[in-house]
Structure formats: structure tokens, C-alpha cells
């Protein structure tokens, strides 16, 4: 009886071993189905591609600054603290929409969160970059540049993008 139980246990454990190795292996190679960029299909089985993009001398590390303009013309800085969220939520809502066209829909919920928190209406959001440039001997401040501007469309529900 005990031998049978042990044998059954071994079969079940073997199933778990094969399943876990299979899931982790396909995840590790980035072969999981579905949109893995933001919602990893097999979490907690993941791929680990972070920090893999190559960089070279002269590459600029972006340091963003987001400025919102209210309906009455005031300028307000938007950052994780003023948004009342962590950096990652802030990044998704205010940085990615300027960098990736596919993420432009993320701006409105972020703006809504900011507006609700501060009791204002934003009519424009501007993203500036004050990059740090890598060199062999260290790093230095790069030129400030305007990454883009999003203006609330006259219908009030959508945004018009001006990204060079």
C-alpha cells in the first residue's frame, strides 16, 4: 500500500516537474502566446530580456519632465508624487504615449487620475527630455529637447499629438 502511494506520488511529482520545466523553458525563450510585453501570459513563468539592448558611447539616457497646462493657463509638473502613483504607473501613462504610438490611449486615464487628484482640467501635456550622455570618461548633461506635446481636442474626449 505504501509502495503504491509512493509510486503514485512519484507519478504526480513527475507531472509537476515536466510541466514546470516546460512552462519555464518556453517562457525563458520568449515563446509564450499572447501579448507578453505588458501582460505576460504565463506569469510567474517569465522571460528575462531586461537590460539586453546594446548601448554605445554617445548614447543619451533620457531624463523626462512632464508638464501639464490647466484650462486656466497654469503649468503643473506631473511626476509620480503629484500623480499619487508609483513610477511605473506614471511611466505608462505619461512617458510611453509619447514614445509609442500604440500606447497613446494610456494618456487619458493618467490625465483623469491627475485631474481628480488636483481638481483641475488639463488641456495640454508636454514632455521634455534633459538627457545624460555616456562617454568613456563618465557622463555629461545633454541638450534639453521637447519630445512632444499632446493637446486636448476641441471635442474634449481625445488628444491631438505633436511629436516630432
Amino acid at each position: 500500500m505504501e509502495a503504491e502511494t509512493r509510486s503514485l506520488g512519484r507519478i504526480l511529482a513527475s507531472g509537476v516537474i515536466v510541466l514546470v520545466l516546460f512552462l519555464q523553458a518556453i517562457a525563458a525563450l520568449g515563446l509564450t502566446p499572447g501579448p507578453i510585453e505588458k501582460t505576460p501570459f504565463l506569469w510567474p513563468f517569465l522571460d528575462y530580456p531586461m537590460y539586453s539592448t546594446p548601448h554605445y558611447e554617445g548614447d543619451a539616457i533620457p531624463r523626462y519632465r512632464v508638464v501639464g497646462t490647466t484650462a486656466d493657463g497654469r503649468e503643473m509638473q506631473i511626476d509620480p508624487e503629484t500623480l499619487g502613483a508609483d513610477f511605473w504607473i506614471f511611466r505608462n501613462a505619461f512617458l510611453f504615449p509619447f514614445r509609442f504610438r500604440a500606447d497613446r490611449g494610456e494618456l487619458e486615464p493618467g490625465v483623469e487620475l491627475f485631474e481628480r487628484r488636483h481638481g483641475v482640467t488639463l488641456v495640454e501635456v508636454r514632455l521634455e527630455d534633459r538627457p545624460i550622455v555616456l562617454s568613456r570618461s563618465g557622463s555629461s548633461q545633454g541638450p534639453v529637447e521637447l519630445v512632444g506635446t499632446a493637446r486636448r481636442a476641441p471635442d474634449g474626449d481625445s488628444w491631438e499629438w505633436e511629436v516630432p
Binding site: 519555464q24 523553458a25 525563458a28 525563450l29 520568449g30 528575462y48 531586461m50 537590460y51 539592448t53
Partner: peptide, 17 residues
């Protein structure tokens, strides 16, 4: 699982860069 995790990290580094 650790081996596969580290192998994944090395694989993507070499594949991308």
C-alpha cells in the same frame, strides 16, 4: 528554474547585443 532564468537572461543579451 534558476538555470532557465539565467539562461534566458544570457540568451537575450547575446541575441540582442
Amino acid at each position: 528554474v534558476f538555470v532557465l532564468i539565467y539562461a534566458s537572461a544570457a540568451y537575450f543579451k547575446l541575441r540582442h547585443a
